[in-house]
């Protein structure tokens, strides 16, 4: 990371966003967005989990500490979990980790959504909105740091 990168970033900052989605809802929604040819910015790198409840908040911490500008999580709507109650547990953990991140001023870089398998358009729009939001925030304060 030298001056060059900084210059490039000034020209056009393209945020790197790490996303965690559940296999049954949001991942299918992303698929649907693709097959329905909805366009959305390519900033997000999606990691598929079998269920919301697989999201260990350590994943979020690790992504942020490794310089991700944004992290998002998305799963089935509460009450519609493929495994009945996985996202209820996930919701508590997400609320906890967001409370911790809020203390450090990082909560605006971790978003979570509920997007069902039929909501391909909502997925595309959410990704658009998220990329814009993170772009506005600028690079993560942890980016390029010796950590």
């Amino acid at each position: 990371m030298g001056e060059e990168t900084t210059k490039e970033e000034e020209e056009e900052f393209e945020p790197k966003i790490v996303g965690f989605t559940c296999n049954w809802c949001t991942y299918a929604a992303a698929d649907l967005a693709g097959t329905s040819r909805k366009k959305y910015p390519p900033n997000s790198r999606i990691i598929r989990l079998m269920c919301s409840a697989r999201l260990d908040p350590m994943f979020v911490l690790k992504a942020l500490l490794n310089g991700a500008d944004g992290v998002f999580f998305s799963g089935c709507h509460p009450g519609e979990c493929h495994y009945i109650k996985g996202n209820f547990y996930a919701r508590r953990r997400i609320a906890a980790i967001r409370t911790i991140l809020k203390q450090l001023g990082l909560d605006n870089r971790f978003k979570s959504y509920w997007i069902s398998a039929s909501e391909g358009e909502k997925f595309a729009n959410t990704m658009k909105g998220l990329a814009e939001e993170i772009k506005e925030l600028g690079p993560s304060p942890l980016r390029g740091k010796v950590l």
Binding site: M58, L61, I97, I100, L147
Partner: peptide
């Protein structure tokens, strides 16, 4: 990472 994980 260690401290933040422990905090959580």
């Amino acid at each position: 990472m260690y401290h933040l994980t422990r905090v959580y």
